[in-house]
Amino acid sequence: MAIREQEVVAAVAGLQIVGNEEGLIPAFGLYLTRHYADYYNRISFACYHRAEREGPAARDRARAALIRAGEVCAFNTFGGIMLSQEWEAVVAPMIESREDWAHGMVAVVNALGWGKWRVDRLVPGEELAISIANSYESTGYLADHPERSDGGVCFLATGGASGIMNLLYNGDITTRPALTPQYFEQVFSTAGRFVARETACRANGAPRCELITTRS
């Protein structure tokens, strides 16, 4: 593998990503925040718990909506990063194959404070298996709630994992497309798009959270 993850993490973590004179963080063609993990966790889990009380249909709708927010994140943030000058400077020189784009993106994720992601398996164009030692979602869940008997809680990570595959193998981020709403629909809503499932979650007692992404 060509991507030297520690170098990428150190480079991204060393960027001075902090609010400017307006209190905004324009970066990668976006406005970033350095936000509170437990803010996201508490509003997401409040939403999910209520839906669970309402029944399976509401639960499935809530899960899909929370994962969709993660896909929106992946499309714009991961896409924006992969089109950025910083990517060109730090990651692009290490890239030797399309798969290295995925490994490079996971290396960048490991500088975002989201917990430690690892690519366990990548079958080009077919499957991506990612596991996370300490996803902020499962960590926050276990801090606030009892362990669950079933149902993973890493909604953002699930959307992020499918996002990597959709950007690389359903769309083609390597051709530097414009990240428009139309392109989002093309990449994330067409038949045969990639869908991620959380097959193990620390909130259920698993040692790591595991995400499998395959075509729908």
Binding site: I17, L30, L32, R34, C73, N76, T77, W114
Partner: peptide, 9 residues
Amino acid sequence: SLVFHCHFY
């Protein structure tokens, strides 16, 4: 715990 996220998310 702090995490980076954008306005889209």
